[in-house]
Simulated assay, not measured.
Amino acid sequence: MILKNFFIGLSQNQFLNTMAQKYGFKLGAKSVVAGTNVEEMIESVKELNMHGISCTIDNLGEFVYEREEATKAKEQIINVIEAINGSGVDAHISLKPTQLGLDIDYDFCLRNLEEIVGRAHSYNIFINFDMEDYGHLQPSLDLIDELSKKYENIGTVIQAYFFRAEQDIQRYRGYRLRLVKGAYKEPEEVAYQDKKEIDRNLLRLIEYHLVNGKFTSIATHDHNIINHVKKFTIENNIPKEKFEFQMLYGFRKEMQLDLAKEGYNFCTYVPFGTDWYGYFMRRLAERPQNLNLIAKQVFNRKTNTIIGFGVGTFFLGRLTKK
């Protein structure tokens, strides 16, 4: 819990976020972010597709408070939709309502989202609504309810640390859902605080939706949960076509490839852009072991230098051989 709070605090540090955007790709951020522009991102997606891995694409950015910035984000996401359609890659979109203006004006955000969802619908591209902190949970679900009146190409995320998660998954069982543990700092009045309780609830949610839901995306790097799902689906005769595993771009690459080779549907969450810092810190808050995974991938054997952006202090740490 101390580490989680530490990384959550870092994710909200504006100075470090600014420094990350300025220097991150020079210091190794490209190991967890698939480029700074659409063209670079599409090439990364093509490479993953070659290994039988589909992708969900996140144009990084959130908690936007200016209409101009939200409009720019909308246009960028539409550019991504056009790029997916034009290139023929196996990919869909993940987006955050706060990037599209939820904190500015609800109706303004709804109009932005309707334009995005409508364009994606014309190309048969799926749109997943990422879930953010508790304060934005119900407004985000309200947006989904409104858009669902007209469109069917949308789904969302259920975060297992919320007490209301069981109620929400029952209500939205007819949707394609991504199930996650949750990565924001939430008060004990609304969310489980103990990791074991969160893990248990995640498994309950996964089992429920596998049996009762439309399509289940199991987003985790935890091999124990993955093994549990494998066993559960076999014992309950759940076909592989009803679910997929998801992991983040740059994390546990070998396991991603292995799961795809085993014949499981696999989807990599592919973020791109320069506004990556808050996203990455929450990944470490969600699972501090991710720091070790990334450190190995940005380790320079020649200079014995490890990129320190992973711990949020943005330093280069020199290692001395013993």
Score class of each variant (00 low, 15 high):
K242H: 15
E189K: 14
F126L: 03
R204P: 05
Q246P: 07
I158N: 00
H228E: 14
G135D: 13
K231M: 13
S217L: 11
Y192P: 00
R178W: 12
D222W: 06
D222H: 07
F232N: 06
K230L: 11
D145H: 09
R252Q: 14
N236D: 10
V180N: 01
E197A: 13
Y151V: 08
G174P: 03
N153I: 01
Y175K: 02
F215Y: 15
N236A: 14
N227V: 07
D130P: 07
I198A: 01
Q138T: 08
P139V: 04
L248W: 04
I169K: 01
L141G: 03
R200L: 14
D168P: 10
I218F: 03
P139K: 01
K214W: 07
N236F: 13
D145R: 10
N128C: 07
I226P: 01
E132Q: 03
Q167D: 14
K181E: 07
Y208S: 05
D194F: 08
Q167S: 09
E166M: 13
F162E: 02
L137S: 04
I125S: 01
V180R: 00
D222G: 06
E132R: 00
I238T: 11
D145E: 13
A165N: 05
Y151L: 12
K149S: 10
G250C: 07
P239S: 15
F243P: 03
E207F: 11
E241M: 10
M247D: 06
R204D: 14
V180P: 02
I154M: 00
I169D: 00
L143I: 15
T216R: 04
K181P: 04
Y161E: 01
L202A: 06
Y161R: 02
E197N: 14
E189V: 09
R173A: 15
Y192Q: 01
I144L: 14
F129E: 00
I125Q: 00
Y134R: 02
N128F: 01
I218H: 02
Y134W: 07
G155H: 03
E244K: 07
E241A: 14
T216A: 09
R252P: 02
V190Y: 09
K150M: 08
R176K: 15
E188Q: 12
A191R: 00
L177N: 05
F243L: 07
F126D: 00
